Lab assay of single mutants.
Amino acid sequence: KNAAKIVNEALNQGITLFVSDNKLKYKTNRDSIPSELLEEWKQHKQELIDFLTQLES
């Protein structure tokens, strides 16, 4: 999976991924984040940080 797909899947579940101080963060109104999503974010962390940083610049 690529970073764009992961970010879109998160958005579809009401979760916004973003970068703050070079760290991957998220915002959501959900009570909890599915563990498989958290695991996927960890596996692709640097790719996600790079992707989101490019989007914001």
Rank of each mutant, 00 (worst) to 15 (best):
A3N: 02
L24K: 00
V7G: 01
E36M: 09
A3M: 11
V19G: 01
V19I: 08
K25H: 15
E56H: 12
A10Q: 01
L17I: 05
S35K: 11
S57E: 13
Q46W: 09
D50C: 06
D50I: 10
Y26F: 09
T53G: 07
I33G: 02
G14Q: 05
L37P: 02
N2I: 12
N12T: 12
I33C: 03
H44S: 06
K5Y: 15
K27F: 08
Q43V: 13
T28W: 03
Q43P: 02
N8F: 15
N2C: 11
Q13T: 04
E40G: 04
N22C: 08
D21T: 04
L52I: 06
L55Y: 11
I6F: 04
K1D: 08
D50M: 07
L37N: 03
L48T: 01
A4Q: 13
D50Y: 12
A3F: 04
L55N: 13
N12H: 10
N29M: 09
E36Q: 10
Y26L: 04
K23F: 06
A10L: 03
S35Q: 15
V19E: 02
Q54F: 09
E9A: 07
L11H: 09
P34S: 06
A3G: 04
T16E: 13
K5H: 13
K23W: 04
S57N: 13
F51L: 05
E9V: 05
H44E: 02
N12Y: 09
L52R: 00
K1W: 12
L55S: 14
K5E: 15
N8C: 13
K1N: 11
I6L: 11
L17H: 01
V7L: 06
G14W: 03
S20P: 01
Q13F: 11
F51Y: 15
D50V: 14
Q46N: 11
K27V: 10
E36Y: 11
N29H: 11
P34A: 05
I15T: 02
K25Y: 13
Q13K: 09
Q43E: 15
L24P: 01
N22I: 03
T16W: 10
F51P: 00
K45F: 12
P34T: 05
E47M: 13
N12M: 15
E39T: 08
E40S: 09
K23L: 10
S35V: 14
W41T: 02
T16P: 01
A3T: 07
I15N: 01
Y26S: 02
F51D: 00
L17N: 01
K42A: 15
N12F: 10
E56K: 06
I49N: 02
E9I: 05
S20A: 12
K5V: 15
T28E: 02
K1Y: 13
F18D: 02
Q46V: 08
T28Q: 02
G14M: 04
S32A: 08
P34I: 03
N2V: 13
Q46G: 07
I49V: 06
K42D: 15
Q13M: 14
L11A: 15
P34K: 05
K5W: 13
N12P: 01
Q13A: 14
A10E: 00
I33E: 02
S20T: 10
D31V: 12
K25D: 07
I6Y: 04
L11K: 12
A4E: 15
T16R: 09
L24N: 00
D21G: 12
K23Q: 14
A10S: 05
H44L: 05
E9C: 05
I15E: 01
T16C: 09
D21Y: 05
F51T: 02
L37Y: 06
N29Q: 11
I33A: 04
D31S: 08
I49Q: 03
L55E: 11
L17Y: 00
E9R: 08
S32P: 12
D31Q: 09
S32R: 09
L11T: 10
N8I: 13
F51M: 03
K1A: 14
T53R: 09
L17S: 01
I6H: 02
L17Q: 00
L37S: 04
D50N: 11
W41N: 00
R30H: 10
K42N: 13
L24T: 00
L52G: 00
I15Y: 09
